[in-house]
Design a protein around this nucleic acid. Structure first.
Length: 571
RNA sequence: UGGGGAAUAGUGUAACGGUAGCACAACUGACUCUGGAUCAGUUAGUCCAGGUUCGAAUCCUGGUUCCCCAGCCA
């Protein structure tokens, strides 16, 4: 996307308040015309669409202003981080279309320099080793309304602090026995400024540093330094770090090093889904979904498997915008962006999800005709294909009603409809299961003059049905997905009740014996199609050579479903 | 009850003292070999109360509501 497109069409200004700031900095030459942003994930989980907003912003701002964006793993807690996430996160960001080139960094690579900065702070009398327990530190921190109390170790001399800190590093002390704290103000109204912990002793194996370190820097101490070391100009982060900014400012100013400008923006929520790890993790661990890449998950892996395109997600993020208000975006907007993209790019194909056998009584038994079908009416360049037609077909069960309600235009006894790209057919008989009364087969007659789908006498039909030839169709499994939660806000539960009660029991429906047209044979995992009149589907990696498995990415807009719903509600 | 933030149609977002606009959603209608797509239209908004100003979503004062902060997580 060019920077011109990034501008507000009406005002000609950048599209959000952060780009406003950056544009102004470029105008005044504040950073010498440089723009350097970064995306700093902790490698302890998978990326979801909320993260995509954050990295899309960072990479996007850099791109718009001819700058650069670093990917830096914030790996300062060895008890939570794993190498597998480093790979997975890169894969997801790359899939979304962003590129950090050579600029892949790790906070853990800066541990030695951070140590030296800490020594400097101690020398300046601005940090001290505290022997209190975690509990004691908590007790003396004070509360939101009451000031904290100074630690009895706060007055230690520089030499003693230096010695103790060195010995912390050497591994002389046990986990939790001592910490290094900044010496700021135990009565500060901002709790983050009440002598925050800078280092904790942790005899843990780091996935990259091994056992080199037995004490690790805290996020608040490390993060600002990481940005400073890399020369970041605009440090974009979410709203909850607003409270921490004064602390980063304090550290950087005490050290007298490069001082990026931090700008905070709001995260967003999506209706009918959850995005925080706190909610997502139990869904996976307690088997409410099939894993982090379950197509119902808002993780990028899940969305990828579901059939989402990165382009659709980026368009969605662009429309969501960037502001300081924590919004709840209607998932319908995401779906709209997806449909818009899929409509343009997906080849059309015919598939029957719930097959109803149809015999064309006056069509010769052994005859097979190839019907020419358009691959994509939105794009003539995608060409046409041949679809076999024969005497026995399948149509969708819901496309036939023995007693059609008002405004139901599809097939019914005595009614004529069009079979897409084939013939006009009229229903002449209905075969039912004697015991259940269920309709099991239809008999129709066809009009040979309507081959291709048009009647030479100009007569019209009210609807067009999709179909497959029974003898030629492939059997396939189709997985239908719906919103993960029935409520817009999944966390909205009565006092004391579990939010999982809002889980949609019908978020997954597996249809084991669908029939798809033969052109789909051998379709590659990940390939996307529109099943005409039904929706967008993609081939799941669970597919095998002999059996295709499809995920329904998204249904088509369905105005009959709306009418039917309204009819039910009026009754 | 301390500190830091935020409030514009149902939802999201624009306006930078000068006609409150756009998108999604909803609803009409047109068109259609996908009840898809497309096109046209309708409904609907500045948190509240004062003030400054010829003129306020925007500036000022006071209030209301919501979010974040008391990890040796990030």
């Amino acid at each position: 996307m060019s920077s011109e497109e990034r501008k507000n069409a009406e005002s000609g200004r950048p599209t959000d308040f952060i780009r406003d700031v950056v544009a102004e900095d470029m105008r005044t030459g504040k950073w010498g015309g440089r723009v350097l942003t970064r995306f700093p994930p902790e490698p302890n989980g998978y990326m979801h669409i909320g993260h995509a907003k954050a990295f899309g912003l960072n990479f996007g701002v850099a791109e718009d202003f001819g700058g650069r964006c670093h990917l830096r793993f914030d790996d300062t807690d060895p008890t939570k981080e794993e190498a597998q996430y480093v790979e997975a996160i890169q894969e997801d960001i790359r899939w979304m279309g962003f590129d950090w080139g050579e600029h892949l960094y790790f906070a853990s690579d800066y541990f030695q320099q951070m140590y030296e900065y800490a020594v400097q702070l101690i020398r300046q009398g601005k940090a001290y080793v505290d022997d209190q327990t975690a509990e004691e530190i908590r007790q003396t921190r004070g509360t939101l309304t009451r000031p904290g109390r100074d630690s009895p170790y706060r007055g230690r001399g520089v030499e003693e602090n230096l010695d103790l800190f060195r010995r912390m590093k050497e591994g002389e002390f046990g986990d939790g026995s001592r910490v290094l704290r900044a010496k700021i103000d135990m009565a500060h109204p901002n709790l983050n400024m009440r002598d925050p912990v800078m280092y904790r002793i942790l005899h843990a194996h780091h996935y990259r540093q091994g056992d080199t370190w037995c004490m690790y820097p805290m996020y608040d101490w490390a993060h600002g330094l990481e940005d400073s070391i890399e020369g970041v100009t605009h440090s974009l982060c979410s709203l909850e770090f607003e409270n921490h900014r004064p602390l980063y400012d304090w550290f950087l100013d005490q050290l007298g090093v490069h001082h990026p400008q931090q700008i905070e923006f709001a995260r967003f929520n999506l209706t009918h889904t959850v995005m925080s790890k706190r909610f997502l993790r139990p869904l996976v661990e307690q088997d409410y979904v099939r894993g982090w890449d379950d197509p119902r998950m808002p993780t990028l892996r899940g969305m990828r498997r579901r059939g989402y395109t990165p382009e659709a997600i980026r368009e969605f993020l662009k429309r969501v915008g960037v502001a300081k208000f924590i919004s709840t975006v209607d998932i319908a907007l995401l779906e709209h962006c997806l449909r818009q993209d899929l409509n343009k790019r997906c080849p059309r194909v015919m598939a029957v999800l719930r097959p109803l056998r149809v015999v064309i009584d006056n069509y010769p038994e052994d005859k097979v005709e190839q019907m020419e079908a358009v691959n994509n009416p939105e794009d003539a360049g995608m060409g046409t294909r041949q679809v076999p037609f024969s005497r026995v077909l399948y149509i969708e069960q819901e496309d036939f009603r023995e007693e059609p309600p008002k405004k139901f235009y599809r097939l019914a006894p005595g009614r004529e409809v069009r079979l897409r790209y084939a013939y006009f057919v009229t229903c002449v008989d209905v075969v039912k299961d004697e015991r259940t009364g269920e309709v099991v087969e239809l008999h129709c007659t066809y009009d040979p003059a309507t081959r291709g789908g048009d009647a030479p006498d100009g007569r019209k039909v009210k609807s067009t049905l999709h179909w497959v030839s029974a003898a030629h169709a492939l059997e396939a499994e189709v997985r239908l997905y719906d919103h993960l939660f029935t409520k817009e806000d999944p966390a909205d539960v009565p006092e004391g009740e579990d939010w999982k009660a809002n889980l949609n029991p019908n978020s997954l429906e597996v249809l084991p014996s669908c029939r798809v047209e033969p052109s789909l044979a051998g379709a590659a995992a990940g390939s996307r199609y529109q099943f005409e009149r039904l929706g967008y589907f993609c081939v799941d990696p669970d597919s095998t050579a002999g059996r295709l498995v499809f995920n329904r990415t998204l249904s088509l807009r369905d105005s009959w479903a709306r009418i039917e719903l309204a009819q039910k509600q009026n009754r």
